[in-house]
């Protein structure tokens, strides 16, 4: 398989990363090299094998339903790019 420039632009948009045309071309070559490596996987018949998502076969531990976190807005917003009246500001969202 081979990724086209449109593929690169499509996934870059999905990933919200601006990619210029020159970058897309360059990235495309590198990604195609990497996907050539990845394609080796397709040679193996894995029918009947259960996908492995976690290293350990353990189940989720549940947290007791209790409020444990205090208000730390001041500390958290001290590192924010733009805030006002306790809110994080972003360019106008149109619904």
């Amino acid at each position: 398989m081979s990724l086209s420039l449109e593929d690169i632009q499509r996934i870059a948009r999905l990933a919200r990363i601006r990619v210029t045309e020159t970058e897309a071309a360059q990235t495309g070559d590198q990604l195609n090299g990497i996907f050539k490596l990845i394609e080796q996987m397709q040679a193996v018949d894995t029918s009947g094998v259960a996908p492995m998502a976690h290293a350990q076969e353990v189940y989720q531990r549940l947290r007791e339903d209790a409020v444990t976190e205090p208000n730390r807005r001041e500390a958290f917003q001290a590192i924010a790019p733009q805030t006002e009246a306790g809110l994080y500001l972003v360019p106008k969202v149109i619904e």
Binding site: Q82, E84, A85, V90, P91, K92, E95
Partner: peptide, 10 residues
Amino acid sequence: HEDFHGMTGI
């Protein structure tokens, strides 16, 4: 969506 200098508050 009240107006914060043309921005949205989260």
